[in-house]
Design a binder for these strands. Structure first.
Lengths: 236, 236
DNA sequence: ATGTAACATATTGCATGCAATCCGGTCCTG
DNA sequence: CAGGACCGGATTGCATGCAATATGTTACAT
């Protein structure tokens, strides 16, 4: 009933992100099985899945440990994301934007404009922007039509803070956040412009810089020592 | 005794590559368990691992099927590999080549020169070149020092024919093969030259073109209809 | 004859049992 | 008092049992 190990993997991810399992701690099977109401077998499957994602790592003496992420590791992952999304942008520009894709992207751009219009961003506007952001990146990836690329990006995005929309809501000052989001969304506009114009190299560069943005934001957030950012990321 | 599921995954990979399990066929657990002398449990773990790699896919009604690879899919994977290895080359060039890394690379270059020196390449020379090729790519990745990048590349390389050295031994005409390898190794020389000079963009472009090479070779091989290339790849 | 429905078989997926192994504590010895 | 070895407990990893479900076949009705 509680079923699919993918579902269990989701639950475990949530628990880890919530800080219930600190980095370096053992993920014992029996307590997890009891907590989730299933047997040890699907738990083990889910743990193996999370290991493939890189969220946990196998311990030397058996079992799994919550992986400890350092700031440079996350930055590296973000750079890889930029490289891969840059490739997606280049491919789309080189193939030419289909009318349907262009329409979907422009709809996302408009949604982003609307979300950022207000001088003060409430939670709803932030959520709307985050949705728009995920959608736009998904449209780009879909339009690239490269399954291997999608797989590679999915693996990267599974890591905390490497995903495109992972950094949106965690910013400190509201004004600073608004400025950052406006800048990011301006890059979205430039990207679509480049895609429409068939400028592959420019589109690729824009996506790399877009990710570089995320890297800089991450540094700012951690430097500010914001509490509860993520229990998984250690400064050094 | 037969133990680790990773070992079983290796065995399954070999069986699949050998054509014992044609694309689209079910991988039934019980026969595999009997054939490998273990129980169904580690078999299942290994299958999940192969699914994460993309070599098999979960069937709708349960169980796993051998994935069918089409030529465009492999080409896409090769392109992603080029993008990622291009990133590795750029990073190394930007960081500057450490003396140890430079020495290791130049040793590999010399080994490649030696392997390709003879006008006719015997099996030993081909094996030596293949080893050198893998080593050089590994050195580059290691020098890049980006774990997320290494992971992404490992996932891509696990796919058949997407790996850097997957295409070396399968060529038809000996003379044509020699020319191809010479060209590829010339690119290796140019790459190291760019790395030494700190030319990041050039190094990246060279690695992309290097992968493009592999893509072209793959097309040639499949167009020639060479038998036994791989039972996994279907023309369309 | 063809499509459908019911059945028998086989296979998956999860739960649990059991041996091997690893970790922690305590006792002994120098 | 310190170091090491032995021992008890707990945990992992694999094997197997069992229920649920998908698959292929056959019989039947139209």
């Amino acid at each position: 009933m509680a079923g699919h190990p993918t579902r269990i993997a989701h639950a475990l991810r949530a628990r880890i992100f919530a800080g219930e399992h600190p980095p370096g701690s053992r993920l014992a099977e029996i307590p997890l099985a009891e907590a989730l109401g299933v047997s040890r077998t699907p738990i083990r499957l889910a743990l193996a899945q999370l290991e493939a994602e890189g969220l946990v790592q196998a311990s030397a003496g058996g079992g799994f440990l919550v992986r400890r992420f350092t700031l440079p590791e996350i930055e590296d992952a973000i750079a890889v994301r930029g490289q891969l999304e840059g490739m997606a942008a280049r491919l789309v520009a080189e193939q030419g934007l289909s009318p349907a894709t262009r329409q979907a992207m422009e709809a996302s751009l408009a949604a982003g404009d609307a979300a950022l219009e207000a001088p003060l961003l409430d939670a709803a506007a932030l959520a709307a922007y985050g949705d728009m952001n995920s959608r736009l990146h998904a449209i780009l990836l879909e339009a690239a039509g490269n399954d291997a690329l999608s797989r590679a990006l999915a693996a990267i995005t599974a890591l905390p803070f490497a995903a495109a929309s992972a950094l949106v809501p965690h910013e400190g000052s509201a004004a600073a956040r608004h400025a950052l989001l406006r800048h990011a969304h301006h890059q979205h506009h430039l990207l679509v412009e480049a895609l429409v114009a068939g400028q592959g190299s420019r589109a690729e560069g824009l996506m790399r810089e877009h990710a570089e943005n995320a890297r800089r934001n991450l540094r700012l957030i951690l430097a500010a020592g914001e509490p509860g950012v993520s229990p998984l990321v250690t400064q050094a």
